[in-house]
Design a protein around this nucleic acid. Structure first.
Lengths: 208, 208
DNA sequence: CCCTGTGAACCTGTTCACAGCG
DNA sequence: CGCTGTGAACAGGTTCACAGGG
């Protein structure tokens, strides 16, 4: 029986990892659950519990060695080797994502950008040439791509998602609102900016 | 005693609202918890429980009237009247967000864009003139702005956040990685795209 | 009889508190 | 003695199952 891993814990792993990288840059080599917790506004028990979910990384009486721990967490997250990613839908948001600096630092490399509009094909976005989505399946196969960002309109997103799934993509991060129907074996993440804003707006209503 | 409202329920309210708007466009006037649930891949009990958290909207034996329910939910979310928002940090992502079509539809109107770089000031992004962040506090006060999007670098985000809080902003949606230290009375939302990608990458490791 | 609204059971994830190792 | 790792208690949210109105 594979033990189930709490999704919230995985979410926090990202934060731990990011924080540890910052600390390493400052030359710090060890940290206790208490200190790490304080910097992220969590409790020390939470940090220990989370890390313990994935293995035994600390030394009693001492704390965690940042170097080895960072390495282990990267491996767990699947970002110990650089992962190639592609983007479908080169609109405003798509363009910004292709140029986004943050991915590289976290182990992701944007290697392809696709769209369906003829007038966009062949143009450049950042250092990438925009390809027709027709060429996506071969590209995915050749370069062994597993992850894609989806920034098409809501109306096109299900159709494009299905194409990605057929092409062998294993995880899709969608920026379109609306639930995607997913086949088994493909993971979906969704970033809904307007929904996030609405949640903020809600917290205002209770206070004013 | 004000009863506490589960944060996950608020998150789902956004989804209900969006779905109901879609249904209304199709001319549908009534829906049962079961049908609404199916379209979002939730359970009917969940839908009923969530809606009941905020009031009594349904009729037994019948279901929910889409028109009135939509109106009520908008009011609850605080988006029944258009809310003005501003953006700080006109980089790649900022530019995309200013031009983003989705906000208007959800009741948000982008009315100001600010940056600190002299060479950007006075240029246009979409239909907005970029202003110096120095002018932000007066702008916020005059136009009575409550919400802001923050797309500065991680290193600047805490400093800018504090300025926003001092200017009277009540909710900030940040796109920079790293936890912000927040004063009471200001709500924070965070969108960390790289972290979302990492979570997808994680789900891959367990399967391959 | 249909479908909502809701106590109660259940379950999952968090916090507590301490045993155990360095 | 310090700090991790972890059973056990706890809390919050979800699901069940049914009472009750239309």
């Amino acid at each position: 029986m594979t033990k189930p891993i709490p999704a919230p814990a995985v979410k926090r792993l990202s934060l731990y990892l990011h924080q540890l990288e910052n600390l390493a840059e400052k030359g710090i080599e060890r940290i206790s659950s208490k200190e790490l917790a304080k910097s992220l506004q969590f409790t020390s028990a939470q940090v220990r519990r989370d890390l313990a979910t994935f293995g035994q990384f600390g030394r009693r009486g001492v704390g965690y060695e940042i170097g080895p721990l960072t390495k282990s967490l990267r491996k767990i997250m699947g970002t110990d080797k650089t992962r190639n990613i592609i983007l479908i839908g080169v609109g405003n948001l798509g363009r910004a994502l292709v140029r986004h600096r943050g991915f590289r630092r976290r182990g992701f490399l944007m290697v392809g950008a696709f769209d369906i509009k003829p007038e966009k094909i062949g143009k450049k976005v950042g250092s990438l040439k925009i390809r027709h989505i027709r060429q996506m399946p071969r590209f995915v196969k050749n370069k062994n791509i597993r992850l894609a960002l989806l920034t098409t309109s809501a109306s096109a997103s299900q159709e494009v998602f299905d194409q990605l799934a057929r092409a062998g993509i294993r995880g899709v991060l969608s920026f379109a609102p609306g639930k995607l129907q997913k086949p088994p074996g493909v993971a979906i993440g969704q970033v809904d900016i307007a929904a996030n804003l609405e949640q903020l707006a809600f917290s205002l209503t209770s206070e004013e």
